[in-house]
Design a protein around this nucleic acid. Sequence first.
DNA 1: TTAGGGTTAG
Length: 580
Amino acid sequence: MYISVMGQIKTWVFLGKMSFWLSKTNTFCWIIPDHRTYQRLHRVPRFFGTISYSNVTMCTKMITSHSKCGRLNDALHLFDQMPVRDTIAWNSIVKGCLDCGNLSIARKLFDEMPERNVISWTTMISGYMRFGYVELAERLFKEMPFKDVAVWNSMVYGYFSNGRVSEAVKVFEEMPCRNVISWTSMISGLDQIGRSVDALRVFKRMVGDGIEPSASASIFPCLITACANSRAIELGTQIHARIVKLGCVDEEYITSSFITFYANYKQPENSNKIFREYVHDSVVVWTSLLTGYNLNSMHNDSLTVFTDMIKLGILPNESSFTSALNSCCALMSLDRGQVVHAEAIKLGFEASAFVGNSLVTLYSKCGGILDGIKAFEGIEVKNLVSWNSIIVGSAQHGCANWVFTLFAQILRAGVEPDEITFTGLLNAASHSGVFLKGKRFFQFFTKYTLIKMNVQHYACMVDIMCRSGELDKAEDFIKNMPIIPNSLVLLNLLNACRTHSDIEIAERVSKYILDLDPHCSAAYTLLSNLYASAGRWNDVSRVRSQMKRRKIAKQEGSSWLNQHGRHPDVLSGNISHPPI
DNA sequence: TTAGGGTTAG
């Protein structure tokens, strides 16, 4: 919460965890809540009083407060009223316009500034970078009369955040001097694009250059994250020991990155230990634990964390909701998902893409597709993940025509489909028996897009060919695949051989599968069933004795059902003890 | 005691 106070403070008002300054007498008090506080503020009066516009420092503070809450008009009005403005005030109003997303006013004010210092230039350049206007940022950077290390850092960070990696690296190498922030930008930039190993190399180079991170350096959280992402558990543990010595493990950013680090290494007990040892009321720290449990399939624990957060008044954000909904989905628990959904509605998150996408997946997997569609339609700004979630969900429900309509809508919306969209389309075509359409999609994607085909796409195509009875074509297709077929692709064909009683192809395919994986029980079972249905009992007993010799047991089929909120694992023939 | 550069969860 941002509070600016002028005059004497007379009263404290407490509302839950929040506290507000209020004035009783003729003194002035200004209350500006942040986004989170707004939700609790409707009962609290706001006090306005006489402003001394000549107090430049106070007005500047207020401009910053207004703009951080998205009240650009108030900020601009205040700025207009100021009889005297120094460079700091000008910089603050430019920054305010940028924080509120109004680039054109920011640039206009920047041009009107009577005097610009290095901060004015950096503010404008970072603003351009933030909104993706890289070329404009570059132009200003060239025009800038004097460049300090901060503006160079802005360029490195700006290039990374716009996906211009080579430029970021080039600028970093060209920098006349570097500080810890320059190295941090480089390390986190590389880590975030998945080059975590390179990120750690940069860190080693930094240490080699004799730069030591200080106790409060924010390089640590991004280092720990890079270790978490690059399987560098040893280095991560060393950094942990170092941070303990420096005595800053209790910092929010460090705590949360460690929770994730240990969760990534399948040590959720260590995540929990750090969480309990360094108590925070930060939603990010709590969400790290929630997500850590989720990652380690401890879905009940993750939902307990979620409910504890709410009980303690720590408001979950989009990420917390995403993880909690994923846990509900993994537990196939529609009712718990609905409770989380209700919380999301209460906090106004149902239109968010993050939350909405998880809701679409939850409802498509555990509920009805109609609820999934409703959640999809509720998403205000749909992204590719939203489209993919509803396409994959609808495909699983066999709604092929609806999937094709959605695909047409994607193209119309100008969203670029990816390999997941393609898998969804092929699945829809194969599950609904629209084989010709599936084949056409395959041709379309291979000819007209740059999407890299993966083994799932080939498995779907084999499935489509097999379902249309074209076993020979499917076999040829597998032979000519540019990637090595996995057992899923081959088992699809073998299964089709059983349906179409084609022993000749089945023998070739099963030999191929067993060469790749001699313990594939499904291949033995399918082949023996095929011989049995053809009455070739000698071959049946040959296959079975082979299985015995190699100690391969027939795998029992299983399925998940949701009965009265419980989830018994139903094995073929008998019901096992429910896990909950 | 007002302005710029970075860091955590997804």
